[in-house]
Write a protein that binds this DNA or RNA. Structure first.
Length: 566
RNA sequence: GAUUCGUUAGCUCAGCUGGUAGAGCACAUCCCUUUUAAGGAUGGGGUCCUGGGUUCGAACCCCAGACGAAUCACCA
């Protein structure tokens, strides 16, 4: 069902066509300037050709002001009837411009730059060309002198579902995505400059490996096998290190079939990098250098506001081992405790645990509950328990720990890195432990990837690998509280199809219709009784019939009568 | 998954104790030649999220459902 405004626009469209104007012309439109160039280099009297969307229009008789928005911003345009129509025929202004154009249409404009009396840089239109007609009205937010936004288009659901509209009317949304793109190219440039190779590895994987997560599953018809959408690309990148590359990285879309909230989308982007002959200590230096460089390139500063916090990405970042972090925050030194002692600590601290958790998992729980959220400034948490990290080398000094770090920022994990496990026999055993977990019902335990073990058997040099969540990094650097704000098209439930046409009468309407269409005219109360419907059903039915112009309720001296309209 | 709040015109939102739905912007008609969110006059526009129920009467009360947001839980 079209709204009145949409119907009017379709009529205007037809009138334009009848008048001989093609509302969707094919040919290229050559511009001389972007809006920003005109404003940055004001040059009174300069002839310019611009193009964009008509976003505001104020008609005041023979003159009108408008605003054209192009990809670089907005600029005011001035339409004067006698400039546009120097001859007798004033159609171009009076009819084409005033009556048949609408807000949202794309126009090409040839004109001259000047400043209005109020001092705003403006293009006086000499000729305008319709480049594309818009049939739906855009929301029209306005900003007043005090910076208040009126009629803001700010319903998150509508904004995400119609991101194209969001981008047109909310400039700051565009800024976020421009920044996202800059962050990614800055990171890519940094990695390329270090001499590492950007690669692409399979998204459809027969064995989803490299992380603990539930995968999406699909099916390949001609092979007749299940395939999984990748949850990580770690195992493939490490195969490439086996193959002899010095360093490889990939910006990877990963997919995890888990809950959605403001920090989790089913598909998200991770950058993973693996560098031969390095360890996790080297990777810490590398990571902080990369992040500092990106901040300076994209923001011009290492200082970032994230919510109420000020975060500084200036090197060096704080480093602390997980056990030291726990000691610092709880006063408990777990380093020499056994499992039952740690379990007692959990109880004392009020950390919820269950019987299936081993020593490592207990330590991880304590850290997650008591420490994680307090690391606002970038901090490397190092040396995780071995059970939590089946792809990571055991610590050189302590076999219960691994050479692993996570980078915490604003109380959240941003990056995760290892000295990669390259002992094939150890790797196979760790996989087998995961299988035992799976048999116990852990639906996130890893599958055994025999080919990956085989690759390690051919020999992988010592390697350090790191994964960094791009969406989360963008959230931090753009100070956005939700992942949906940094994804163009966040996953959403499908729109309901309740808009399905209701041309036919409902059951209740049909009952009323059957009676009144034979009698043509009758008393309302009598009709209602004859129908035998409940009050609500009657009320809805008769109102709906009235709206569809099938019946009409007429008030008379004696009461109400219902009339059937042919 | 739990709790709370919300869903009314194209957009942003009012709508009291239940009594036939309102405003601003946008739209339409007319007037207006340099305006700064908003010039003037007039007018049109509604599945009050959906379905039931209570009631003489429901946008409003009750039940069920859909969708969304926030918080929490779970999860990287």
């Amino acid at each position: 069902m079209l709204s009145e405004q949409e119907l009017i626009r379709r009529e205007s469209l037809q009138k334009l066509i009848d008048y001989g104007i093609n509302p969707y012309p094919a040919q290229e439109f050559n511009r001389s300037h972007f809006s920003s160039e005109i404003k940055e280099n004001f040059n009174e009297g300069e002839k310019v050709i611009i193009a964009g969307r008509l976003l505001r229009r104020k008609i005041q008789g023979k003159a009108s002001f408008g605003v054209i928005q192009d990809s670089k911003g907005k600029i005011q345009v001035y339409f004067n009837r006698d400039t546009i129509c120097p001859d007798e025929n004033k159609d171009q202004y009076n009819t084409v411009f005033k009556k048949w154009l609408d807000l949202g249409d794309f126009l090409g404009i040839e004109g001259v730059v000047f400043k209005t009396m109020v001092g705003e840089i403006t293009v006086e239109v000499q000729k305008f060309h319709l480049l594309s007609k818009a049939l739906k009205p855009l929301p029209m937010p306005k900003v007043d002198k005090d910076g208040n936004i009126h009629d803001a288009f700010n319903d998150p659901e509508l904004r995400y579902r119609r991101r194209y509209v969001d981008l047109v009317v909310n400039e700051q949304v565009k800024d976020t995505f421009v920044k996202r793109s800059k962050i990614m190219s800055s990171m890519r440039n940094f990695l390329n400059a270090k001499g590492y190779l950007e690669v692409e590895t399979p998204i459809l994987q027969p064995i989803p490996g490299g992380a603990a997560a539930r995968p999406f599953i699909t099916h390949h018809n001609s092979l007749d096998i299940p395939l999984y959408l990748r949850i990580a690309n770690e195992l493939y990148l490490k195969r490439l290190i086996v193959g002899g590359f010095e360093g490889v990285f990939e910006f990877a879309k990963d997919f995890r079939n888990e809950g959605m909230d403001r920090t989790h989308n089913p598909e998200f982007t991770q950058m993973e990098i693996y560098v031969a002959y390095k360890d996790y200590k080297w990777m810490m230096n590398f990571t902080e250098e990369m992040l500092e460089t990106i901040c300076l390139e994209v923001l011009g500063t290492t200082e970032v506001s994230i919510g109420d916090n000020k975060v500084n990405f200036k090197r060096p970042f704080k480093r602390i081992s997980m056990l030291d972090a726990i000691k610092e925050h709880t006063g408990h030194d777990l380093s020499s405790m056994n499992e039952s002692q740690i379990r007692a600590v959990c109880k004392e601290l009020g950390v919820e645990v269950n019987e299936t958790m081993g020593k490592g998992k207990l330590i991880d729980e304590i850290f997650g509950e008591k420490c994680e959220s307090s690391y606002i400034q970038p901090t490397f948490i190092t040396d995780y328990p071995v059970e939590m990290s089946p792809l990571c080398k055991k610590h050189r000094d302590n076999p219960e720990l691994t050479e692993r770090f996570e980078l915490m920022v604003n109380g959240k994990e941003l990056a995760n890195a290892y000295s990669e496990l390259n002992d094939p026999i150890d790797q196979k055993e760790r996989f087998e432990e995961q299988v035992k977990l799976a048999e116990k019902g852990d639906d996130e335990a890893m599958f055994i990837d025999h080919d990956f073990v085989r690759a390690l058997e051919y020999g992988m040099p010592p390697t350090s690998g790191m994964g960094i969540g791009i969406d989360r990094l963008v959230m931090f650097l753009c100070n956005q509280p939700s992942i949906q704000e940094v994804l163009f098209f966040p996953q959403m439930k499908p729109e309901s199809k309740s808009a399905s046409k209701k041309l036919e009468l409902t059951e209740n309407e049909q009952i009323i219709y059957d009676i009144i269409s034979k009698r043509k005219l009758m008393d309302l109360v009598e009709l209602k009784d004859l129908c035998g419907l409940s009050n609500k059903q009657w009320d809805k039915g008769i109102k709906s019939l009235g709206k569809q112009n099938i019946t009409k309720v007429v008030k008379t001296d004696t009461g109400l009568t219902v009339e059937y309209i042919q």
